[in-house]
C-alpha cells in the first residue's frame, strides 16, 4: 500500500466478483471514485511504524471457547426452511448446479 496507489475500475470489478455482487458499469464508475477516496484516507496508516506491534483482532483475549459436550435440541427443519425464498421441503431450492452431462 504505497501512498498515492489507488483502486482502479478493474480492481472494483474484481472485488465485486469476489463479493458476489452484480454491478453495472455505472456502479463500477461511482464505486471506484468513492472507494478511491476512502482508501486514500486509509493510506494515513502508512505514517506509522508498526514493526513489532502485535496485531489485535479482538478486544477479548479468548482462545478456543468450547461448550460442554451435551446433547440439546437444534433448530427444526420447518423452522430452518421458514424464511427460504424457494424450497421443496425438506430442501432449499437452488438453480441447477451441475450440467446435464454429455448428451447421449
Amino acid at each position: 500500500m504505497s501512498k498515492g496507489q489507488t483502486i482502479t475500475e478493474a480492481d472494483v470489478r474484481h472485488v465485486a466478483k469476489l463479493s458476489r455482487l452484480h454491478v453495472s458499469e455505472d456502479d463500477v464508475h461511482h464505486f471506484t471514485e468513492q472507494l478511491a477516496a476512502v482508501l486514500d484516507y486509509i493510506g494515513k496508516l502508512n505514517e506509522l511504524d508498526v514493526d513489532g506491534v502485535e496485531s489485535m483482532a479482538h478486544p477479548l483475549e479468548l482462545v478456543n471457547v468450547l461448550r460442554a459436550d451435551q446433547e440439546r435440541p437444534g433448530m427444526s427443519t420447518d423452522s430452518a426452511l421458514a424464511n427460504a425464498p424457494a424450497k421443496t421441503p425438506p430442501f432449499f431450492k437452488v438453480p441447477k448446479v451441475l450440467g446435464d452431462g454429455p448428451s447421449a
Partner: peptide, 9 residues
C-alpha cells in the same frame, strides 16, 4: 455494497 467491497479488497 461499498463496505462489503472495501472489506473484501
Amino acid at each position: 455494497k461499498r463496505r462489503i467491497m472495501l472489506g473484501t479488497y
